[in-house]
Amino acid sequence: MKKRLFQLSLICFSLLFVSCSDDDDDKQMTIADYVASSANYSSLKAALDRAGLTATLDASTSFTVFAPDNAAFSAFLEDNGFASLNDVPVGVLTEVLLNHVVVGVNRSSSLTTGYVKTLAKENTTDNEIDMYINTEDGVLINGQSSVVAADIDVSNGVIHAVDKVIGLPTVVTFATADATFSTLVAALTADPGFTYVTTLSSTTAPAPFTVFAPTNTAFGNLLTQLGANSLGDIPIPTVQATLNTHVIAGANVLSSSLTNGMTVTTLGDSFTINLGTSATFTDLNGRTGNIVVTDVQASNGVIHVVDKVILPQLD
């Protein structure tokens, strides 16, 4: 009996030793080393090599990488009409890969719901593109890609495996991924004739866009102000005119470009920016609201979050 217990103990110790050794081996590898060592990441390795990013992830700078496996890359290529990685323009491939990389070590225990900057950049301003992380049920990125294995520690950061390639987000991506904007999305799709979703998903002219995005609370307060029970109680032309007053076309206007007294010309009516102890706006009806979050960067524009719906001139 004692001999059998000794053998079992020896086996358990051996398994523990092997497991710890594997963990230690991972920690000795860089992100690039880890990707190169795994057959399941051969597509990611090929993509990094083609984009010239392998050296970046092999350096001493600490990064968090959300790593798509081979199946994720196959789905990405098929969904976007590419026969192989070699058919993806290098510039596009580079930005897509950088959209999976965040500076610093962000283990799963430190991830919270909200926006973080990636290394990808919007091409008219070089502003870093955001990633929306939702941790309410696991970890969901931009409403599309889930973390399926977390906290793979390596010498220069941490890797989280994801089940889909994280495509470059548009302003619509963030509007639909972030529940803060669910009423805005309802307004954008309130009429079959509306083309807002298609237009604001575009990466060519009239992009880029600057969107002053009202929160759900902002819409709720507006309905109360108007004595309406729902968006359906508001005439469609009024909804359309109101939505137009929140969008600038053809410019990615960052908060650093906003000035006191500046008139913002939109697809609808204009409004005025007020800068003091905080950033506010005044619409053509004399209503003032706060700009509560700035510079949420998408690939085709930027979002500034406002706490009041901006109304066009009311007759």
Rank of each mutant, 00 (worst) to 15 (best):
V148K: 04
I152A: 08
G227L: 15
L16S: 10
A67G: 03
T263K: 06
G91S: 04
V147M: 10
H100I: 00
Y196V: 01
K308C: 07
L140F: 01
F13D: 02
I291N: 01
T282S: 10
M262Q: 14
V88M: 07
V211I: 13
T30I: 09
A186Q: 15
N290S: 15
Q7P: 00
P208V: 08
L184M: 08
V197S: 04
Q313S: 06
F181V: 04
Y132A: 08
S201N: 14
L16W: 12
D69E: 09
G138A: 02
I291Q: 10
T170Q: 06
V103G: 02
L16P: 00
K27S: 10
R50P: 04
T288H: 07
S38Y: 12
A249T: 13
D69N: 07
A218R: 10
V102H: 12
A298W: 12
D178R: 09
D79H: 03
G138F: 04
T280D: 08
D315P: 13
S155T: 09
V88E: 06
S37H: 12
V154M: 11
V293G: 03
D269G: 03
D283N: 05
A190I: 15
C12P: 04
V253R: 03
V197D: 04
F76I: 07
D307R: 02
V292D: 14
D178I: 06
T266V: 11
K117C: 02
G232T: 14
T203M: 14
P312V: 06
V247H: 09
S257K: 11
V239H: 00
L8K: 10
L140K: 14
V292S: 13
T54M: 11
V247L: 06
I236S: 00
Y132T: 08
I11Y: 04
P89Q: 11
K117Q: 14
E128D: 05
Y34G: 01
I236P: 00
V302T: 10
T294E: 06
D25S: 07
T113D: 15
M131V: 09
T173E: 09
V296R: 14
V105P: 02
H304L: 10
L119G: 00
Q28I: 01
L77Y: 04
E122Q: 03
G301F: 15
L48W: 09
N274C: 02
G261Q: 06
A241C: 06
A150V: 09
A213P: 02
L44W: 07
D315A: 11
N70Y: 06
N156E: 15
V239F: 04
N300F: 15
G268F: 05
Q313P: 00
I166R: 02
F66P: 00
T124F: 13
D26R: 14
L258S: 08
L188Q: 03
E95W: 01
M1W: 06
I248P: 00
P214A: 12
T189S: 13
N244S: 03
F76T: 02
L267D: 00
A71H: 00
T210S: 01
N290V: 09
D307S: 05
V293K: 14
D153W: 04
V253W: 01
A298C: 11
P237Y: 02
S230G: 11
T170R: 03
N260K: 08
S155L: 15
S37M: 11
E136A: 14
N221I: 00
A72V: 05
L44T: 10
F194D: 07
A279W: 07
H160P: 05
A39T: 04
S278M: 10
H160T: 10
L48T: 05
A47H: 02
I159F: 11
G232Q: 07
